[in-house]
Design a binder for these strands. Structure first.
Lengths: 200, 200
DNA sequence: AACCGAATGTAGACGCCGCCAACAATGCTG
DNA sequence: CAGCATTGTTGGCGGCGTCTACATTCGGTT
């Protein structure tokens, strides 16, 4: 068992991580709007100014939260990606993973998309975003190399697929779409994206 | 010329509309986060509690802003929609209008998407959303009737097209995409959506 | 035209918030 | 073990949203 001191020693030990965990919890429960540093401090049992030692301001904490989100999203995508698969099943698996993440982390995803770039942490943030969209670009590039997808400016193709996935995730995060409906529709969604809506 | 009283009479006359206008202005200038009822009141020259007479709380004002946004978006879409056109040009025109609105009203659009549904004004809000997506559904339905689009559950088709457009708008609103790039890419975007990414 | 209730604006207060500065306890490194 | 950087505490500042009590004005009834 980990030590559970009756009265916490003066130094917490891992306040930063504890704050992030608590923040993610209330983010999940009550949304980003009702996140207060003071309340966080109360929940964790430190003074109201203690968080300031680890996050220069509230935005910094939100940024850290978002960054962590990109990490976990990246892991989920990596785990779901099988480069050996043909384009359609591969993209379907990726989409399923992405939408699954959106379902389980709706509020967090919103935070990740909210680009309040202070120019400070925006490097890390931009890098994280780049890493994420890069995975999609890789799939498109592979497919193009294998002739499974039309030629043409890759950015254009990335844009369509990215926008579609992003839009779906936003529908989920916004409550416009139930998780079941979203997951059930993934297959045909990808199919429509690849095969188009016009009759052949 | 309209009367411009040196010292405003006790009753403002049209405080509600004035507040909404001021709110939309600072929304555009400095984002939804830095909107304060008190500051709004100051700008307009009334007491800090006056806005409370017209909006029961801050969220109510945001809802009103969003509702107004849906009105204007609806007008823009209606103006751009020509039911006589074939599917591809018709959808392109609609997409252009939608993305144009996203460009000109990025912050507002974000507000419109943020579903903080208090169950009070959510009826109006849901109706507004329904009206908007209905326009898209109409295009799809017309196209299906004319055989310009594959058969199949209309909801599925609406979902793809809606998600793609929504995703593009979100890219714009989030700064991931410059207005020029977005508008330049509309045509090929719609083309890809209709014709698919796989080689024919 | 005079009245009176409803609508609208004002003043003040309460508790919350983010942030800052001054101080205290602790850990670390020479 | 001395000194310094780190981390936590206390207290305070101004701003915020919201509530209540009060003031002024508007509009319909008589």
């Amino acid at each position: 068992m980990s030590p559970m001191p009756k009265s916490r020693p003066y130094h917490h030990g891992d306040l930063r991580a504890t704050l992030l965990a608590a923040a993610e919890h209330t983010l999940r429960e009550r949304g980003a709007g009702s996140l207060s540093l003071r309340e966080l401090a109360r929940e964790v049992g430190v003074s109201h100014a203690a968080p300031g030692r680890h996050f220069k301001d509230k935005q910094a904490l939100l940024n850290a939260l978002a960054l962590d989100g990109y990490d976990r999203l990246g892991q989920a995508l990596d785990a779901a990606d099988d480069p050996a698969l043909a384009l359609e099943p591969r993209l379907t698996a990726l989409a399923r993973a992405y939408l699954g993440f959106a379902i389980d982390n709706a509020e967090l995803l919103e935070l990740m998309y909210a680009r309040k770039h202070d120019p400070d942490a925006s490097e890390q943030m931009a890098a994280a975003v780049e890493r994420t969209v890069g995975k999609l670009a890789q799939v498109v590039a592979d497919a193009q190399k294998r002739g499974e997808i039309i030629a043409g400016a890759p950015e254009e193709l990335n844009l369509v697929t990215g926008a579609t996935l992003h839009g779906m995730a936003a529908f989920i995060a916004g409550g416009m779409l139930t998780p079941e409906a979203a997951l059930a529709g993934v297959e045909t969604l990808v199919h429509h994206l690849l095969h188009g809506l016009k009759p052949r």
